[in-house]
Write a protein that binds this DNA or RNA. Structure first.
Lengths: 209, 209
DNA sequence: TCGCATAGATAGTTCTACTATCCGATACTG
DNA sequence: CAGTATCGGATAGTAGAACTATCTATGCGA
């Protein structure tokens, strides 16, 4: 198929496909002439994956590129692929991530991790983002919300265990790789949407009674 | 205090404070002369809240403005404030949210909501975003990840119930309002960070054994 | 053969979140 | 009380992200 058909079948404009090609998110088609190339099903699937990561998962184009590069790297262990996916879904650091209040919040997060026995890389960006959130709650005088911390941790543990099981249940290693990425990115979108729905329900119940 | 001190104490540049004033995120100080105004503690707290929403919660400035307007509206019921906060943390719709596959995914989400007995507004954007995620998983051939759906729903339910309880436990209505907003926005940041940490742990355990 | 599609390059657009500059007025400093 | 710094308010400019449009040679299909 040529670029026009790829565009039609994926719903992505030709100009945008060219942009993704330039940016290295989509591999080039196989050239048949100086200004002709054909694309296959793999390109169509890749394009759908890109749109899912960007539109549903909220990844930046740069983040999606890194994830896709990791997916394409056959030598990369699953565990490291997970790290790449995590980095891509994680928002950049808050600007003031270094003062005393932040260090205190960081100690609190590390204590939680230690108590749970979670094996976590000390430099993980997720540790930093959790710290940002704890610090912000304290800075805003909302420390009582930290009473939810263990509920969050329980939920995170259950969800993560279930997700890992689902992905590792797959026979084909290539499908495991896809599963790690889609599970991380789309799973986050799904879980946060469901949390809001459940909040809506809880709020409706409390208001009524 | 004048704008320079407000800037120094909040860590936000004078230019940015002026920008927030223009954008209506921060109320004007009380003028003492044609070109002088003083700001109080409320301004400092508001500024910290803005930075938490934007930097930690990832809200856009426009989203933060809407949330803050809702916070300032004393007549707005808590339940509706929650809706405003939800809208602000929810990313815009995926561009192709309307085809047959999307309708099928939507039915699936509605079935889940029905089975759980969740009381949800039919037009809630969270329903749409959950649908986007389910649709994307199916479109990518990752339907087995939907096996995690009930785990997600369980987790969402537990977390939401705990959050609502924490907020409603407050005596002061004004603090409830703050709690709804910070709980929704910062809670999301915290939960997603913890999920990634738990995934890291689960992955480390599986790899080792 | 003629008109439309294509590859590749380059330039332009839109939006967001700031950042910088300017002006006239006011406040501190010695 | 002169001089300098800071202020509020207005306006304009900037940087980055994610496209989008245009251009120039080709090629391809009827």
């Amino acid at each position: 198929m040529r670029i026009g058909e790829l565009s039609g079948r994926s719903g992505v404009s030709v100009a945008t496909i060219k942009y993704y090609l330039r940016e290295g998110l989509l591999p080039a088609g196989t050239a048949t002439a100086a200004n002709q190339a054909v694309y296959g099903d793999a390109h169509l699937r890749r394009l759908r994956l890109i749109r899912a990561l960007v539109d549903v998962g909220g990844l930046s184009v740069a983040g999606a590129r890194e994830v896709l590069a990791a997916v394409d790297d056959d030598d990369l262990p699953l565990h490291e692929l997970l790290g790449v996916a995590h980095k891509a879904v994680t928002r950049p650091a808050a600007p003031d991530s270094d003062d005393a209040a932040w260090q205190a919040a960081r100690a609190e997060v590390e204590e939680l991790v230690r108590r749970r026995g979670w094996r976590v890389e000390p430099g993980s960006p997720s540790l930093d983002r959790a710290t940002d959130a704890v610090r912000a709650m304290r800075a805003l005088g909302q420390e009582d919300l930290l009473g939810c911390l263990s509920t969050y941790a329980d939920a995170a543990e259950q969800v993560a265990a279930r997700e890992l099981d689902a992905v590792l249940a797959r026979a084909d290693p290539a499908r495991m790789v896809e599963g790690v990425v889609t599970g991380t990115v789309l799973g986050e979108a799904l879980l946060t949407a469901l949390r809001l729905l459940a909040q809506q329900d809880a709020s409706a119940r409390r208001a009524q009674s």
